[in-house]
Amino acid sequence: MCEEEVKLLGAWGSPFSWRVEVALKMKGVEYEYIDEDLMNRPKSSLLLEYNPIYKKVPVLIHDGKPIAESLVILEYIDETWNDRTALLLPQDPCDRAVARFWAKFMDDKCAPALWRSCRREGTERENAIEEACALLNVLEAELRDKQKRFFGGDTIGFVDIAGNFIGYWIGVIQEVAGVRLLTPDKFPLLCKWCYDFQNFPIVKENLPPREQLFAFFKARLEKKRKTFSPAA
């Protein structure tokens, strides 16, 4: 039997690309990583070939077949390598649907508002901070209701991995932008979740170094403050 071929088109510093990497590592799947320069224009021929519609990373290539969009890829990984010990999504259909809801909420609502709070200035920043705080309060309430260490329960799962932008990246980006939004006095449970998330063994072993990530985003926010956004 031939060994399966798994490749990942990703980008250093991208929280969306990192999601896929850590999921593959949790499953114990061997893969080849191919880095895409987010600032490269034009896009690489490989990226255009495998994701011609969105032209974004990450893209998982499994035996020559491409799968795009990080949340879609996470579900694909969970379903394809479902014989492994680590399960990303709950097995109960209702719980799976709820997990998808919260992951989408983080991507569609929380992440854009947090980005705006760091990239905008003046009144626009104030409005973005107000919006972001309201959304983070929703997540704070969800953790309070669950009374669990992670959104996935006692260990990290689909929602926690989907929340990695909040769990690690936004702290660095806020420091670059000089914004203090996600603080223990305002969001004690969410900040504790961030700490537990960052110190979960497989997460801790694979997070990009904070100093390098700081320099990465500082250079980009300074160059293109109002137009840069990460790959999705």
Rank of each mutant, 00 (worst) to 15 (best):
R100P: 07
A97V: 12
R116T: 12
A68M: 12
A99F: 10
E79R: 02
T80A: 12
E69M: 15
R116Y: 08
I73T: 06
D107G: 12
A113V: 08
G64C: 10
L71M: 09
S70Q: 08
W115F: 08
D78N: 06
R100F: 04
F105V: 09
I77C: 08
P93V: 15
L89I: 08
A99Y: 13
C94W: 11
P66I: 07
Y76L: 09
A97Q: 11
K104W: 00
W102I: 03
D63I: 10
A97W: 14
D108W: 01
P66N: 12
V98N: 09
D95C: 04
L114F: 14
L87S: 03
L88R: 05
Y76A: 07
I77T: 07
L87Y: 06
D78Q: 03
S70A: 14
I67H: 11
R84D: 05
A86E: 04
W102H: 00
C94S: 13
L88G: 00
R96W: 13
D83H: 02
T85L: 12
S70R: 07
P66T: 11
R84F: 00
K65W: 09
E69I: 14
D107F: 01
D92F: 13
D63N: 15
D95S: 06
R100Y: 00
D108V: 05
D108Q: 03
L87H: 07
N82A: 05
L74A: 07
C94D: 08
D63M: 11
E79C: 06
P112Y: 08
M106E: 06
M106S: 08
A97N: 13
D107P: 05
D108L: 03
M106A: 10
C94A: 15
L88I: 01
L74N: 07
F101E: 03
K104L: 08
D83W: 02
A97K: 11
N82L: 00
Q91I: 01
P112E: 06
F105P: 02
D107Y: 01
P93N: 13
K104P: 10
P112A: 02
P112L: 07
C110Q: 10
F101D: 05
P112M: 04
Y76G: 10
T85W: 05
V98G: 01
D78P: 07
A111S: 04
G64W: 12
F101T: 06
C94V: 15
A97R: 13
K109W: 03
K104Y: 02
K104F: 01
P90H: 06
E75P: 02
P112F: 10
L89D: 03
